[in-house]
Design a protein around this nucleic acid. Structure first.
Ligand SMILES: [Mn+2]
Ligand SMILES: [Mn+2]
Ligand SMILES: [Zn+2]
Ligand SMILES: [Zn+2]
Lengths: 139, 139
DNA sequence: TCCTTCTTTATAATAATTCTAAAGTAAATA
DNA sequence: TATTTACTTTAGAATTATTATAAAGAAGGA
């Protein structure tokens, strides 16, 4: 039963975002969204994981398409990391990151774990959209 | 005279970094470092500006080489910006940025203009290397 | 000057991502 | 349910940013 509830959730999530629940989207959505903790990934890492964890085949372009569709629908966010590949994040709330360059690993920091006491005002004619704090780690 | 002093400065800057003062490096260094304010650029934008502002020719590979050599010597820093291209920065001190996505423009924020009051401790076995604050702007 | 080392350059290669267009599938319609 | 339409997947080509290669050129020292 629980499995069916989840399936319905995924279907609704897709439908309400204007996305047809295709086999690929459902599989990817299940893999990404049916988990407790935040998941950070690149398209390449997701591709490898899907290959291992599912029996379906996914063209790389489909993973790109799907991930971007999920991002545009607000189900994923994009995180800027020094490097060449784009990272995605199942945590779409306002939050910050540690970055461990040893393992190329992002770790969430809840918005309320960082308090900024003093911040400059935005340049003339501009407003602050959001503030991202990125904490680089070393050993 | 002032022009000669500057030329000597550039030569010393290159020499002390173990870089031969070639025509290309001197031109690029003069263009990048003989200015009051911070300059943020991509390799592509620098290429176009050099083409406009100087009479010399620069292979794109030379600009890549030179910019990376300057970065490795500590004369430039690299800034992570959402997007595909790498940004470089003539400000190598510890500082933060506004980002105006309308104009793809970075604006410096001095380190002392931001005060962080509360910050989480690093994960087990890790230390904080540095903290980068990135403020996205809107109109 | 001669020699050695470093640098520039044009071009090829690579890596990540996006585009294309044909074939397939889902949803809407009859 | 059968037909039609719109959307999606796919393999492969194209694009973009960047790095590698290797030959020709320039710099610095003896
Ligand atoms: Mn994107
Ligand atoms: Mn670099
Ligand atoms: Zn996150
Ligand atoms: Zn800067």
């Amino acid at each position: 039963m629980s499995k069916n509830v989840k399936k319905i959730d995924i279907f609704n999530k897709l439908r309400s975002s204007g996305l047809r629940p295709t086999k690929q989207r459902v599989e990817i959505a299940k893999y990404l969204f049916e988990r407790e903790k935040t998941f950070h990934f690149t398209v390449e890492s997701l591709d490898k994981l899907l290959e291992k964890k599912t029996t379906s085949k996914f063209a790389l372009a489909t993973i790109y398409n799907t991930v971007h569709a999920f991002k545009d629908a607000g189900h994923l966010s994009e995180v800027e990391v020094r490097g060449k590949k784009t990272y995605f994040d199942t945590n779409v709330s306002d939050h910050h990151h540690f970055y461990d360059s040893e393992n190329s690993e992002l770790i969430d920091i809840d918005a309320n774990e960082i308090l900024i006491q003093k911040i400059p005002k935005a340049p003339n004619g501009k407003k602050i959209k959001n503030v991202e704090v990125f904490i680089n780690l070393k050993n």
